[in-house]
Design a protein around this nucleic acid. Structure first.
Lengths: 242, 242
DNA sequence: GCAAAAGTGTTCTTGGTACACCCATGG
DNA sequence: CCATGGGTGTACCAAGAACACTTTTGC
C-alpha cells in the first residue's frame, strides 16, 4: 500500500431490485439482523471486495438474494452516496444499483439479514434504514426515465408476455394510464423491441393476445415519453460507465 | 473502525473539464510529475478526504486547477471506474466528473503536476495515463447527450453570448452542422433558455447579433436532438445522485 | 454594390393523441 | 346475445427539417 492510511475508506454496493407484483411496483428489502437499525428494513447490499469491480460486487450480492442472474436481468448504476456520516460506524461510500426483474419466486435472505421479502415501494419508502429511502427514490426515478428511452420494460416481464402485460409495466411504474391502442402500435412499429413467439394467450374474458419475447433492441428511437413531469429533480443522463 | 481492514480502499475523483477553444472541444490535462506515467498527460484529480463528499472533493480539485467555481460552472458525475488493476500502485476506485467551463484563462498546475494546459480532445485521447482515455470518452459522450436534453450548452459560453456562439457550441461538441435558422427559432421558443441583455455584437462582417445571458431553465422540453447515432454504447440515464 | 451573418416566413413531413370502430373469446 | 380486452384506421395537431427570402452591417 503506497498511499496514506487516513485516506482509506469502505465501499459498498446497495441494490434496488424492482419488480411488478399485483399491479404495484415492489422492491426487495431485507430485515437487518445487526445494529445499527437492527430489525428495520433496508436495501440488500454489501462490501466491495479487493479483487472485484463494482459490477461484479453487485452481481454477487444479487445472486445471494435472488435466483436470477445473467441476461435475464437489467442491472445498472443508479447513484453514488458519499455523505461522510451516512453510516454511523465509519466512512462508507455506497454505489447504488438499479436491478429490474420479472415477478420472481420469494427471495432468499442474505448473510447478515433475518429475512428478505418483496414490499410495495410506496409502503417501505418511509421506513428504510440509512439513506436507503433516497437511494430507492433515485432508483425508481431512473427506472421511470429508462422506460421512456430504452426497452427495459420487457425486463419486468417473464420470457413470454403480451403487449397488455408490457403496457401494464408502464402504467404501474409511471403511475399513469397509457392508451392501449396507441401503445400497441408504438411497440409494434419499434423494430426489435418485441418479437412474436407465434403463441397466444387468452385472458379471463376477451380476445386472446399474441405472445412476444424481448427483441434485440435496447434503445427506443423515438422514445416513449410520459407527460412532462414538472421541472423538479431533472432526470439526467450518463453513459453506462463501469 | 468497525469493519475489516482488508476491505479498505482508496477513492479518487477525476475531472474531465471541457471547454470550446478555437472551434475545437478541449479538455484540461496535467502533466504527471510522479511515477507511474511520469511526464505523461492525465486528467486532474485527487483523493477523496475523510470528511468530504465526492462533490466537495471534485469542487476542491477544480478550484485547484482553474479559477472558476460556483454557479459559473456545470459539474456532474460522469462515471465510476473500479477495475481492480486500474492503478498499478493499489486499489483505487475513481468517480469521474464532467465539468463544463467557458473558454478560461490558462489553468494553473496542481500539486503533483508539472503543468496544466488545454488540449484538443481528439489530440490527447490516445495518450492519456491510466484509464483516462475511457473516462474522457464517456465524459464527452455525456456532454453530447446533455446538450440534447439540458441547457448546459450555455455553460460553455461566457456570460454574454450570441445565438451563433451557442450554435457553435453544439456544432463543435457534436461534430455536426446545425441549421442556423431553425436553431435560433428553437432557442428563442424555449422559455428560460436564454434572456436578451439588450446589447448587440457586430461580427467581422455581417449584421450585429443580439446578446443573451443564460436563463433560469435547466432542461430542454422538448429536447434538441442530434441525428440518431447508430445504436452503439446507448446513452443511458441517471438521476444526479450525490 | 457585394459578401456575410442575423433573423423571418412558409411548406412539407413525421410522429404523437384521441377516438371510432372491428375482432375474438367466455359466459 | 353481452361484456371484455385485443387490435386497426383515421382525423387532427405539434414540432422538426428544409429552404426561400429579408435585414443589417463592413468593405
Amino acid at each position: 500500500m503506497t498511499f496514506r492510511q487516513e485516506l482509506l475508506l469502505h465501499m459498498t454496493v446497495d441494490l434496488a431490485i424492482l419488480t411488478v407484483r399485483e399491479n404495484r411496483l415492489n422492491v426487495l428489502v431485507i430485515e437487518r439482523g445487526n445494529e445499527p437499525y437492527r430489525g428495520q428494513d433496508a436495501l440488500p447490499g454489501g462490501f466491495v471486495r479487493p479483487w472485484e469491480t463494482l459490477d461484479e460486487a453487485a452481481r454477487r450480492e444479487l445472486a445471494e438474494e435472488t435466483s436470477v442472474g445473467g441476461d435475464e436481468l437489467y442491472l445498472t448504476v443508479s447513484g453514488i452516496y458519499s455523505a461522510p456520516d451516512r453510516d454511523p460506524r465509519s466512512r462508507v461510500v455506497s454505489v447504488a444499483y438499479l436491478a429490474i426483474a420479472p415477478d420472481l419466486p420469494m427471495p432468499t435472505a442474505g448473510s447478515d439479514a433475518i429475512g428478505a421479502r418483496w414490499a410495495p415501494v410506496d409502503a417501505v419508502r418511509a421506513t428504510l434504514a440509512f439513506d436507503h429511502a433516497a437511494i430507492l427514490a433515485d432508483a425508481v426515478e431512473l427506472a421511470r426515465t429508462r422506460l421512456e428511452f430504452t426497452t427495459v420494460a420487457a425486463a419486468f416481464c417473464p420470457s413470454e408476455f403480451t403487449i397488455g402485460d408490457l403496457r401494464n409495466v408502464y402504467e404501474v411504474v409511471w403511475g399513469t394510464s397509457v392508451d392501449p391502442r396507441n401503445f400497441a402500435r408504438k411497440v409494434a412499429h419499434t423494430d426489435g423491441f418485441v418479437v412474436p413467439t407465434g403463441g397466444k394467450r387468452a385472458p379471463e374474458t376477451g380476445r386472446p393476445a399474441t405472445l412476444y419475447r424481448r427483441g434485440p433492441a435496447t434503445t427506443l428511437n423515438p422514445p416513449l415519453l410520459r407527460e412532462a413531469t414538472v421541472d423538479q429533480a431533472s432526470p439526467e443522463l450518463e453513459p453506462a460507465g463501469c
